[in-house]
Design a protein around this nucleic acid. Structure first.
Lengths: 202, 202, 202, 202
DNA sequence: CATGAATGAGAGTTCATTCAT
DNA sequence: TATGAATGAACTCTCATTCAT
């Protein structure tokens, strides 16, 4: 029964992502999400409080899974620079693999700042914290610069990734997103890595 | 009477921009737009066919004014490179000056591709044509490269500007948009200008 | 100015008959009536209190003209039987000559008994009285039977005519209405005329 | 659950008949129909597409029931002449038993020919076909004349019944409708029956 | 847990009527 | 008088949400 719950919950959430991406939040109908999830309309309300909660849950649950995935993957890479590269690649890959999710994250969730501000602070903050941890580690290890606020580096990294994905979504998701990972990593690392002292030598 | 018509039309359109930006298209209520324009609900329908038409009209009328402004300003600058710089600066300045308009253009109008595809082709095409004219001029004058499709240059210029503005809107419209004009112009010109032959000399 | 008033009043009333016949009372728009009468919307309200009043006025004014016409025509025919024939023929001819008016009288005015009951009693009563006068005259002259209530004869005559016209309207106004006058007159007269005593003689 | 569906559907339809008869189609409010059917406003739209569909459904469903009833009753009467009498009596009785239905059929449904022409052709045609079948049978049996188009007899029968009911409705539904059945049957049969050959004998 | 029929608040829109010009 | 732009009440219809089964 537990498993069944989880499975139905997941089906509804995934159906919601597809319908929100296809129709936009307001044009999406609960009945259409229910039909696509192959449950009754009322069942949606056994798993989610209301339509808004469905949107927020998409954000929080997908973020939680994503963050957990990034943490796991990063464990295998001790070096902060590689951990950052890993994070960047996973960020891009996650959206490239699920363009509907990308549409919902980059467009629907931003529509009215209310969602981000009122409800979804925690999941976003956890992601920002994860980025912050990598930056902090890089500083401790001496590979990242320490001469500017750590929050700035965190914002730079997240902001760049976010803008790249938004541009990709708004441009019709035609180009290759993951292919840009290396360039972005290179660009970002040039900005935040400590200048190689060996280059300064005589 | 003519002036009054125009003035009320303008008041409703501007109120719609504000309300659409604040609430999003779907959360916006005709009654709120009417109240903000200080007219009766029914008056909105004397000037616009329906709620959708209000959104489309914002696009078309603002675009028309913007394009007319760019054309006028460009007349004073004979050189294609300066004309391009002028266009870039005006594009950024227009949105910076009216952040609500930016929100409507970059987010609301994209929601369902239908608007752009079904209704607002003409106004957008006219802008793309204007950009195309500048490219064409630059090629005739010999200052722009001619070794790739003209449409590509046009798309590069519009796409870059559009992405920059979208990123600015989605990031909360905090940064300075016009300040980026020179960099963008520099970047774009590096891509499309003809290599200076004098630098290749002995 | 008096003439102008009258002329505009008439134009609006005639336009209303046409539009009511074409669209039905509820689908008819004041703006359409005004356009068809070539006056401004507001002008309609200088001559009629409101939309209902327009319908009632059609009934009352057309009835008044019709009754006046019947009275004039009847004066030339001293005999009650010929007067009745005259009335019948004019009743049918009036509607045949103006099918739009027929549609309004037989359908729109009946829709909700309210009009007939609340507003238009007088004009209708005057017509019933006119019929009653003819019946009364026939009785005095000895040509009509006197052995049943006068009101019954009046009702028989009006009811028959009304039913014939209604059937004609509802059937699409295709057949010839006036052509039925003689048969109707014959039918009615057989019912109400005094049996010819000469036939009873030995 | 099936029974409940059917029962609510029926309640709404019957309430609509009453309210349409009382107020006319345009003055009738969905909210009033809902209240009279003891359901919520929205429930009306679970069973009927819109207000127009409600009117059309009244026609089609009542016609279907009526036609089925006539067919059943006619089975017990093998003779075409008695079958026609049966049809006439049921036609009149159906409306006499439900004067509200009569008002809707004879007045509301005719208002704008659109309903009859665009939507309700099938149900009406089925009734005309039923009448046609009786005429055809009478001809085969030799009791009805065969020297004029069959469609004419069908039109005569339906037209007469329709006019009689319309007249009854428009005159306030005061008189006895069913009582006229025999006269109407007699009248119609005199017109379409084959002259009795025995009367012609020597 | 699951269902889906029922609910009813609330939206966009129309159009009879008014009134400043 | 005549106008027609402006009004806003009132309508139909949608759809998120509930709850008896």
């Amino acid at each position: 029964m537990r498993r069944k719950d989880t499975e139905k919950h997941r089906r509804i959430l995934d159906a919601a992502v597809r319908v929100f991406a296809r129709k936009g939040f307001f044009r999406a109908r609960i009945s259409e999400i229910a039909r696509e999830a192959e449950v009754a309309d009322g069942t949606v309300y056994l798993y989610f409080k209301n339509k808004d909660d469905l949107l927020i849950s998409i954000f929080e649950e997908k973020m939680r899974d994503f963050i957990a995935g990034v943490r796991t993957a990063m464990k295998e890479r001790p070096d902060a620079r590689f951990r950052l590269l890993c994070l960047i690649e996973r960020h891009l890959a996650a959206f490239q693999a699920d363009p509907d999710l990308a549409a919902v994250f980059q467009v629907e969730l931003r529509r009215s700042g209310r969602f981000m501000k009122d409800y979804s602070k925690d999941a976003l903050k956890e992601y920002l914290d994860l980025i912050g941890e990598v930056v902090e580690q890089g500083r401790r290890e001496g590979s990242f610069r320490g001469d500017f606020p750590a929050g700035l580096a965190r914002g730079l990294i997240f902001g760049t990734l976010d803008e790249v994905v938004s541009a990709w979504v708004l441009s019709g998701r035609r180009s290759d997103l993951t292919g840009q990972g290396e360039y972005i990593a290179d660009l970002l690392l040039r900005g935040i890595r400590r200048e190689d002292p060996s280059r300064e030598g005589p």
